[in-house]
Design a protein around this nucleic acid. Structure first.
Lengths: 190, 190
DNA sequence: ACGTTTGCCTAATGGTCTTAGGCAAATTAG
DNA sequence: CTAATTTGCCTAAGACCATTAGGCAAACGT
């Protein structure tokens, strides 16, 4: 038999490209079929339905993002690692806006658990090992970093910082400095 | 003539309610018409099209959110104001998840400029006046706070923190403490 | 060479958004 | 009060979408 799954994967990859071209929201079976030069109905042998298609693109994006982040922090620590990690996210978002949006697609609990999501938390934890936070505060810091990275990049891509000085670039490094400083002087909990 | 605009406003308000009930993404002309007990085509005398409907709901949500935040910081300063402001956002998001999602709907530049968006920046700036940051750093801090609030609430509502200890509630207050500490000891820029 | 599987197809159903044109009731003006 | 206007809804229709069912030829493994 012709290897099953291979074709499905090509379809999903094409979906990811399409997302970067026209936006993740606009990725639909019919649009993807158009890109692939086949009839819409033909897609349904590779993908269960529209939601399944989006889910698979999200999983792909999550993996790619984790790979990039992982490569970025290898061999680094402290402010250096923080910057590399954060930039891995931001750069990925700018190079692959559709995939990045896909990575934020809401997965159901089971799918999320088997996604690269947990890898992201583990990496953030590894990053924090360079700072020594009280054990209990580590999770709070993980959540803070996730919030800032996601939040900043989203606002930036929505154009929130584009028409005002100082440049978004400048705020980004300044914010990373501030976070580094915060992590080195994390306040004792009351 | 029967006052124009009044009916349109009622339609938009119903759209906002619908968003809280079924999610902002799922708010469509046909769904809203169903809720209102009228035919889909009839909506088009009140609203230009589906995108216009979503835009108007977004503008409504942005205003409401600004009102809440504004009321929250009145008469407060420092960590007190920071907490009240942040909680205004978070509470609104939990009470009105659909509207909150609407507030993050991407508006074109012109619409965004005439929305309550600028009010949000001004309020954040007002909040920061309680801490005295070097003038140049103030914008960076505004952007940081916006990122954290948006990012945290979004991750939290997506269920990102739900199945692990410590509770999201605890992380939230701990993160606010950390931000307060950071704002009081903002690092000098290199 | 043969049966199986794959990857595509056409056809059909039911839902969506949107425009056009009409009609009765409410509202305003004289 | 009456007449003109406007509103808020309607039906009808076109174009597009997601999805299911059933078919067929080429590619594949044995």
């Amino acid at each position: 038999m012709a290897r099953a799954g291979l074709a499905a994967e090509r379809v999903v990859r094409a979906g990811a490209e399409l997302a970067d071209e026209i936006g993740f929201e606009q990725v639909t079976p019919s649009e993807l079929a158009r890109k692939l030069g086949i009839k819409t109905a033909s897609l349904y042998s590779h993908v269960k339905n529209a939601h399944d298609l989006k889910t698979r693109i999200a999983l792909l994006a999550l993996e790619e993002l984790a790979d990039q982040a992982s490569a970025a922090i290898a061999g680094r620590a402290g402010r250096d690692a923080l910057g590399a990690f954060a930039n891995a996210y931001r750069d990925y978002a700018f190079q692959h806006p559709g995939r990045f949006a896909a990575a934020r697609f809401r997965l159901d609990a089971a799918t999320a658990a088997s996604s690269a999501g947990p890898r992201h938390s583990r990496m953030t934890r590894a990053l924090l090992r360079g700072y020594d936070l009280p054990e209990l505060q580590e999770t709070h810091a993980v959540r803070l970093l996730g919030s800032v990275f996601n939040g900043y990049v989203e606002l930036e891509m929505a154009g929130g910082f584009s028409h005002s000085a100082p440049s978004s670039e400048e705020s980004w490094t300044e914010i990373l400095d501030a976070l580094d400083s915060l992590l080195r002087n994390w306040p004792a909990s009351s």
